[in-house]
Simulated assay, not measured.
Amino acid sequence: MGKLFENLHLVIGIGIALAIGLMAIFHVDEINASALLQWLHVFFGIMWIGLLYYFNFVQIPTMPTVPAELKPGVSKYIAPNALFFFRWGAALTVLTGALLAYVQGYLVEALTLQQSYQLIGTGMWLALIMAFNVWFIIWPNQKRALGLVEADDATKAASARTAMITSRVNTMLSIPMLYAMTAFRY
């Protein structure tokens, strides 16, 4: 049993198979693109926002207390892996959300903030801003701050601060974004 749970990919595969089994048992007549996209959108959203909250509630506040000799363990191993799932979680959350809105027939109405779609549209725009921040501000700055690309110490420090501030902006925006997403009724 231990070997099973030591293999993350196998655990994820079994989890997906179990979820598909639940769909087949309880919603055999309702399985469609919309239901599948909604499930994937929530899955990737949990990955994205979960890592955003990990960075902001755990890693950022804890790093100043970590002894200097232990910091490379985070900056060289943990953070790059977490940032991989963070940015791809963001991209796949936005993609599945856009596809879901398209399949359900309100993508344009939401993005143009038309009547009855202003709440979900606002949530979508917040998510787009946040995903932009992840890919075009946080990630490039984190690459410098973590030494994944060459930069002098002053640039690394400035990049770390920019990434942190932008991550905090995303944390702030995630709160109304999550409200808009969960309160919308199609």
Rank of each mutant, 00 (worst) to 15 (best):
residue 156 K to H: 14
residue 90 A to L: 02
residue 115 Q to L: 10
residue 185 R to Y: 12
residue 106 Y to N: 10
residue 162 T to W: 11
residue 4 L to V: 15
residue 73 G to I: 02
residue 66 V to L: 01
residue 113 L to I: 03
residue 41 H to E: 01
residue 67 P to L: 12
residue 141 N to P: 10
residue 171 T to P: 07
residue 146 L to S: 06
residue 51 L to Y: 00
residue 56 N to G: 04
residue 180 A to H: 12
residue 153 D to Q: 13
residue 71 K to M: 14
residue 131 A to P: 08
residue 118 Q to M: 14
residue 95 L to F: 14
residue 4 L to Q: 08
residue 178 L to S: 10
residue 46 I to L: 11
residue 156 K to G: 08
residue 58 V to C: 08
residue 85 F to S: 00
residue 74 V to H: 13
residue 83 L to P: 02
residue 83 L to H: 01
residue 75 S to F: 08
residue 75 S to L: 07
residue 72 P to C: 01
residue 83 L to Q: 02
residue 175 I to F: 02
residue 129 I to L: 04
residue 170 N to C: 03
residue 100 L to A: 08
residue 120 I to Y: 14
residue 108 V to N: 13
residue 88 W to Q: 01
residue 33 A to E: 12
residue 24 A to C: 12
residue 94 V to N: 08
residue 37 L to H: 04
residue 77 Y to P: 08
residue 67 P to F: 10
residue 28 V to A: 15
residue 165 I to D: 09
residue 36 L to M: 11
residue 169 V to G: 03
residue 57 F to I: 15
residue 164 M to N: 11
residue 46 I to P: 09
residue 74 V to Q: 10
residue 149 V to Q: 04
residue 155 T to W: 12
residue 154 A to R: 06
residue 176 P to K: 02
residue 38 Q to R: 12
residue 135 W to V: 06
residue 123 G to Q: 00
residue 39 W to Y: 14
residue 68 A to L: 14
residue 165 I to A: 06
residue 2 G to F: 11
residue 19 A to E: 11
residue 17 A to M: 03
residue 30 E to R: 09
residue 130 M to R: 05
residue 112 T to H: 03
residue 96 T to S: 15
residue 80 P to A: 06
residue 3 K to H: 07
residue 141 N to D: 14
residue 38 Q to C: 12
residue 163 A to M: 00
residue 13 G to S: 13
residue 136 F to K: 10
residue 66 V to F: 03
residue 24 A to V: 11
residue 107 L to K: 05
residue 9 H to P: 13
residue 26 F to K: 06
residue 88 W to A: 00
residue 48 W to M: 01
residue 105 G to F: 10
residue 117 Y to I: 09
residue 160 A to R: 12
residue 116 S to L: 13
residue 66 V to S: 00
residue 29 D to K: 11
residue 118 Q to E: 12
residue 121 G to T: 11
residue 47 M to P: 07
residue 97 G to V: 09
residue 48 W to E: 00
residue 14 I to Y: 05
residue 29 D to F: 10
residue 55 F to K: 03
residue 49 I to F: 04
residue 8 L to D: 13
residue 20 I to G: 07
residue 101 A to W: 11
residue 6 E to R: 09
residue 175 I to D: 03
residue 163 A to I: 00
residue 41 H to N: 02
residue 142 Q to N: 08
residue 146 L to M: 04
residue 55 F to N: 06
residue 134 V to S: 04
residue 16 I to E: 09
residue 90 A to V: 02
residue 109 E to R: 05
residue 129 I to Y: 01
residue 181 M to N: 05
residue 53 Y to I: 14
residue 81 N to P: 08
residue 170 N to E: 04
residue 53 Y to C: 14
residue 90 A to S: 01
residue 51 L to W: 00
residue 136 F to Q: 05
residue 156 K to E: 15
residue 73 G to M: 01
residue 156 K to A: 15
residue 93 T to I: 03
residue 131 A to W: 15
residue 48 W to C: 02
residue 186 Y to C: 06
residue 21 G to A: 14
residue 26 F to E: 12
residue 184 F to K: 05
residue 125 W to F: 03
residue 36 L to Y: 14
residue 159 S to T: 13
residue 18 L to W: 04
residue 107 L to M: 04
residue 36 L to R: 05
residue 52 L to A: 05
residue 79 A to G: 10
residue 6 E to K: 07
residue 168 R to N: 15
residue 179 Y to F: 15
residue 16 I to K: 07
residue 2 G to A: 06
residue 101 A to F: 14
residue 33 A to Q: 09
residue 68 A to M: 13
residue 148 L to W: 04
residue 27 H to E: 13
residue 12 I to E: 06
residue 116 S to W: 10
residue 27 H to L: 15
residue 170 N to F: 02
